[in-house]
Amino acid sequence: MLEIQNISKNYGKKKALQSCHLIANKHDIIGILGQNGCGKSTLFKSVMGLIEVDSGTILYNHKQCDFNQRKKFGYMPEQRSLFLDLTLYDQLKFLAQLKGILDDRFDRLVDLYIERFDLKDKKYTVLNKLSKGQQQKVQLIASLIHNPDVLILDEPLNGLDFYSVQLVMNELRIQASLGKIILISSHQMDFMDELCTHLLVLDNGHTIKNGKLSGLYQEYGVCVSVNADSLWHNISKLHKNILEKGSMIEFHYANLLEAKKALGNFCKEPTITTLKLHNVSIGDMLKEGE
């Protein structure tokens, strides 16, 4: 269990983090969200011990988090952090050796991950010859190679195409299923919706939302989406919470019961060809938070 207890960090007068609190258990994928400069990276760096917090404590398995504890953590920073003159294999080997992974085990692991991340033919390619997305995947492999118990991933989906995002998300689901704790930040809300089990939303260093995603979904109600070219106006004249989302129209309801009633009415309208009952998206939660 990873416990972040009321940590605060100031950079001069700027308050980067204020009393941030978070508890993460095995199998949790916690999305850390917020605008640029809200304190996400500061939180990650604090957990990784790269910056010293001004107050508060970080515990791992009920013990003060120190360097030895953090050896079980894997970290992927937001910036491109690679020796671009090395080959993929050499870069990963360097980091694996720093973690004390023996060559045989490393070779097995590197083959496994480059296959999973579709980089098999790039094993001996110099990193500066790889695309930005491929380099991003190498960084992710670097954070996974020592089989960490906790994964701290700062914007891992940046620069990835849809196919690669799916690969990464699948990998993260596999890792979570193995009992890992994953802390991930991203601005790609749709993917965070699909991936996260918990959410921590920061705003100027302050925690504005924190909890299980299922709990937050209940708090924010339920949505029904229908195709926008249907005659939905006839049915939902009384609706106030309506959002246009491209080819779909989204109706917000306070609870599941109301949504189910509305669903019955939508089913009667023949022009409605697409009908979807779903939770409020994380992006919409954040908008409401504003």
Binding site: K45, M48, R70, F73, Y75, P77, S81, L82, F83, L95
Partner: peptide, 9 residues
Amino acid sequence: SHMIPIILT
């Protein structure tokens, strides 16, 4: 090359 944070972990 921003490797310092990685190395320091």
